[in-house]
Design a protein around this nucleic acid. Sequence first.
RNA 1: GCACUUGUAGCUCAGUGGAUAGAGCAACCGCCUUCUAAGCGGUCGGUCGCAGGUUCGAGUCCUGCCAAGUGCGCCA
Length: 556
Amino acid sequence: MLLQKKIKEEIQIILKSEFPELTEENLKAIQVDASKSSSYGDFSTTCSLAFAKVLKKAPILIANQIKNNLEEKLSDIYSIEVAPPGFVNFTLTNKGFNELVKSLNKDELIEKNTDKAPILIEYVSANPTGDLHMGHGRGAVVGSALASIVKATGRQVGTEFYINDAGEQIQKLGQTAWSLYSKEPSQSDQYPPELVEPYTKDLKEGLSFDELTELVKNKILEKQKKVLSSLKVNFDRWISEKNDLHNNGKLTGALNKLKEANLTYSKDEALWFKSTDLGDERDRVLVKSDGRATYLAGDIAYHLNKFERYEEALNLWGADHQGQEVSMQVALKALGNNPDKFQILFIQFVSLVENGQELKMSKRQGTLITIEEVLEKVGPDAFRFFLLLSHVNNRLAFDLDLALRTDDQNPVFYVQYAHARACSILRNATTSQVDGEEAICSIDEIDNAVESEEIFNKCFDEKLSEQEIQATKNLILKLSFFNDEIQRSADNLNPSGVAHYLIDLANLFHSFYSHCRVLDYENKTLTLARLSLIRAFQRILKTGLETLLITAPERM
RNA sequence: GCACUUGUAGCUCAGUGGAUAGAGCAACCGCCUUCUAAGCGGUCGGUCGCAGGUUCGAGUCCUGCCAAGUGCGCCA
């Protein structure tokens, strides 16, 4: 078990016995974090500050109580300082650092927690009427990374893409396709023909309008799947509005539920949802006067179905869909679902910057930049990493020039390079050299090295420079917070923390690399000690990158 | 007009109510006889949009204002 977790548990035991008025929830919230500055030790906790009010006691007294109780217990692992107004700071001994690296090499890197309810993440859900653009790309990247992170923490996750293949947009697509296919004059309000044309080539003759529409839709969908898959985005299920809701009675079922709950009325030959009564700004149409269901009706049916299968649901929607949120929330609530279990993240727009200029984009003029175009230039890893760096609530300027560069300006290369360097060291250590020199050691020797405090202490030998020792400690400390970072990202449903963590980690590794020579035939003990740290680093960086669905190359 | 989101270094962005607000890029100065210089070290750079409030403590929470983006269809 990681040292900070051990410390946390000790504090919980102390506070529980000293202050029985603290609730389980209070105790659970205790955090042992990295200290802000090395002058405050290695780990610190602010729990005495947080509990001062509940306990009606000066924080410094609580802090001292923690210190006095904890001090004798593990004095070979850390020393404790209390700083006003009530911080408790822990400074690790060499043995403490050894314990950390041991855990990082032996334990599961990401703690599994199965208490949390299964969650369904719906994302992308673009219309099957054209190419996916960068806004979809952002949703795709964030959604897939999020699903992966949450899954890594042991929680059950399902992912779905909802295909809006039953509405008016698909009709318009059909009309455009039809005029291209039948050479009949085009009607108004259609899709730009040049965007549809590639899908109407080489079709057999004699197709009906519906057959043609279905065929073109499927071709577009296949292309979307292909593009997503090259971004490493795959879904557990693709839900078709037409086949999975309209044609099998689920839509009618949902409408009946709303009717039974007396939440609908008829007006102007349309069926309306009395959403104003429930807090919406106006009533919404469910079935249009031509007898077709609206998008909202289908979406309500879909979400009712989601909650039959999952306890919680998360949607990643484009910012242009924010008007739907209230209607959906009130509908679900009115039909007996807990609104706290349904959450929507709105993806703000991505703009593209090239040569320092923001590119003007318009769907109608066909100047919308597609995922494919950007992906072709920068590749999936840079594509993913850049879009993961900022929170979806924030508008994002994607700098094509920067992402195109394959040098140190591009953070994804910086991180991947750190991994390649670590692999290179491990490879050089464990394989015999071209000049016939034997390998320094085997993987087993490295794994065993960390078990020996004597070997590991070489990392902190007094003959080493202060810089070397500090670089080593900094790297170990950062590594020890990998699990915390993953858990926090999973809890907050925000993968950007992991991406930033990996940059910081790579930074500390590069610093360690330049200060600390690892392979040294003259000093095998120090070499082994440092290799055990490199091994932990490599394992964690690889896991981190792969959790974000980004490759961790062994050579670059 | 109303609703949602955003406002932090020249630029792109991090920042769980806790200590001295961070990173990358840009600018400037150094570092390759040794494991990958796609790297490292250093300098410069901030009234955290503005004004109040809550708190022992606010970039973080609340209110108002200002600015930007988005939404306000029998489109999806």
